[in-house]
Design a protein around this nucleic acid. Sequence first.
RNA 1: GGUUCGGUAGCUCAGCUGGAUAGAGCAUCAGCCUUCUAAGCUGAGGGUCAUUGGUUCGAAUCCAAUCCGAAUCACCA
Length: 591
Amino acid sequence: MSIVKQIQSAVINALSTSYHIPFTEKDFQINQTKPEFEGDYTIVLFSLVKSLKKSPEEIGNELGKTLINNNPQLFTSYNIIKGFLNLVVDDQYWIALLQKNHNDICFGKQAMNGKKVMVEYSSPNTNKPLHLGHLRNNFLGWSVAEILKANGYQVLKSCIVNDRGIHICKSMIAWQLFANGATPESTNQKGDHFVGDYYVRFNDEYKKQIAQLKDGGMKEADAEKNAPIMLQTQQMLQDWEAGKPEVMELWKTMNSWVYDGFDITYNRIGSNFDRTYFESNTYLLGKDIVQEGLDKKVFYKKEDGSVWIDLTADGLDEKLVLRKDGTSVYMTQDIGLAKQKYDEYKIDQSIYVIGDEQNYHMKVLKLIAQKLELPYADDIYHLSYGMVELPTGKMKSREGTVVDADDLVDEMINTARHHTEALGKVKDFTSEELVSLYDVIGLGAMKFYLLRVDPKKKMIFNPEESIDFHGFTGPFIQYTFARIKSILRKEKSVSTGAYSGNLLPLEKQVVFVAEQFPNIITDAAKELNPSVIANYLFLLAKTFNSFYSEHSISNAETSHKKDLRLQIAVMTSNILQSGMKLLGISVPERM
RNA sequence: GGUUCGGUAGCUCAGCUGGAUAGAGCAUCAGCCUUCUAAGCUGAGGGUCAUUGGUUCGAAUCCAAUCCGAAUCACCA
């Protein structure tokens, strides 16, 4: 049980026995004591004034005395300043906690709870390579999955690949028109970039044709509809849906190029999935549910045969769920896919890691599912995250203003190499060891950078300023870990005995922060927010570094002190390692 | 126009289930490597928490209004 919980129940106990009124943990607040006062945790007394009809000082004194009498093993003293009761926790409590947990690499993790969660993330299109926005999505999805696992959930990571539709046909048409049979192999290009170039090529040509038609006197809207390349693309989409062999052949070939490229990128960033859905397999799903909705009168049919749902009573709009030609729309597919996920895995919760531009869509999806009374409706959860923007505004792949994922990874790994070489600490590394070290540091910096901010908020990325390696960063935490490992390599073993003296302030501070890790893991899961972990790890590393620079571990004043400090170091390194793993980041033994 | 989200130091962000003098990192300035890894540590300067009003013992945090910014409201996905 965490120290805060223990204090909570001690206070509830003390209050109820002293005043014979039932109290709960909501009746008072426990904060960490501010550093300028003596104490570890503080009870805020103001909220008790009304119900007890006593002054804060009076309550504080009575409560402080009772707490110490009833829990001599927990508290050593208290002081009251204004309406705040500051409690000093016994050093022996921290020492016992340290002794018990320092070697536990699973510290903070929950036992399996029997619940199954699916986390869907990444969702790439097969007409262009991954960009910075996908990276935020991937890292978030991965980290949330890890955090849920640590909280005892069984987690399935899934990916829906957007592999069909008009946008896919655009790159196919452009390839037919302009490639002269070129392939990724013949041009020595990564497959996803190769195809992406034809997607851009399509848009260039399309713009040109529109301009020509407008010069010929056509209105803009008509020009957009009648540009020959657009007509060709629409024809291709129809041929695809009809299963025309040569179109299917081209589609399969080009998609396979893209998948080859994606595999490389996913592999580099350390991402994978337990289940991949392809939209080409799911886009027809959901039609039976539309019929069900019509029967239940949740949906209605317009004269032209299209099917709608009226959500105006819920403050939303009318929404199309089936086109007049009977083909399904995005929404229909998503309802169908939600059902398939549920049928396949009997999941208790389905988390969708999707950008906040789709907040409306996801809200409607859930609402429709609820109105249809589908069993999984309430378990749909949209983990909405903000867009990554450039200082100049939104990234647009059509205009080529995207930060490419592969380029960024290359750059980060390069920067890691430059920093490492400049410091010259790993001259004895083999070239393979160096390559993996640069990977770990470069990716660590990038992942930490994208995960350390609240996912809900949009973030600004300035490509001109490279991602930092100092301060609140991944490498800072990796460095702290490597430093500890360096000490531990020189020690034969760490005594597991309990220290019997008192703790110095910096020694206590590290254990104090370490103790919070289990709570942090549950908080991060509650909010589905990896930044909670990132902020905490930074605090722990910083606290340890202050301790480290002030007190020698190997040359401690006494051998008992040395054992104590080694335990502190071991516990810190274990938390840093498992915490970073929750962010999808590795930590190096040396750097 | 409707809905939703956001506005905290020069920059990037914490803090938001109300609590003590609003915190980090970067950048700037000043110190610390013959002693466990200086990707580190210590310190300084830097704030009308968008604005106004309200709720109360107490508001960056809750409520209302206003200003500014973004997303969204497709027979696109």
